[in-house]
């Protein structure tokens, strides 16, 4: 039952992470297009700037829950490694609690932000403006998923599951080159 739920949540976080990857590719393409439009047609776009600003937020925030679930965030284990097993479990519980707290705060305050932005029709300030509720909603959703993975994937509870779900390891750059 718990495993089933974990797999389900992982499908969700992985989909968000894939969306983040696709977004990175679109950033590369849209900015390159903007440069071409500026030189070839003397007509830079008015959408590349605002869309790519928000894209950085999307790239980051969409991938956060999956990286947490699969243990890919930057952390320091020098002290942790030297702790006795009992204290190590306490430390892990504190980490899970902290992650859940951040997820909760982001989900709740992010939701309040969505309401204000949507209710007031807030947007960016250009001729092409991204409605502010969209980045706010991304933050809120990411917070909700972080809360979920914090509860379902305590640090190192299920290393074998985390391993199957892991994306590429940053330390493996060019491993198959």
């Amino acid at each position: 039952m718990l495993d089933h739920l974990r797999r389900l949540v992982l499908i969700g976080t992985r989909s968000l992470a894939v969306l983040a990857m696709v977004t990175t590719g679109l950033m590369m393409l849209s900015i390159s297009y903007d440069v071409i439009a500026r030189y070839a047609f003397r007509a830079p776009t008015d959408w590349a700037y605002p869309l790519n600003s928000s894209a950085v937020l999307a790239v980051t925030v969409l991938a956060i829950p999956h990286l947490y679930a699969t243990g890919h965030h930057i952390s320091m284990d020098l002290v942790h490694r030297s702790l006795p097993p009992k204290l190590r479990r306490v430390a892990d519980a504190v980490t899970a609690l902290a992650a859940a707290l951040l997820g909760l705060v982001l989900a709740v305050t992010g939701f309040q932000t969505v309401l204000v932005s949507y209710g007031h029709g807030l947007t960016g300030s250009g001729t092409f403006s991204v409605p502010l509720w969209i980045p706010d909603l991304i933050l809120c959703a990411s917070g909700a998923f972080l809360l979920l993975v914090a509860v379902l994937f305590p640090p190192h509870a299920e290393p074998e599951l985390a391993a199957t779900a892991a994306g590429a390891d940053p330390a493996q750059d060019g491993a198959n080159a």
Partner: peptide, 13 residues
């Protein structure tokens, strides 16, 4: 931005 467009230029942010 709309004014620059109306005058035939390209607004840049």
């Amino acid at each position: 931005g709309e004014t620059v467009k109306a005058l035939g230029g390209a607004p840049v942010f």
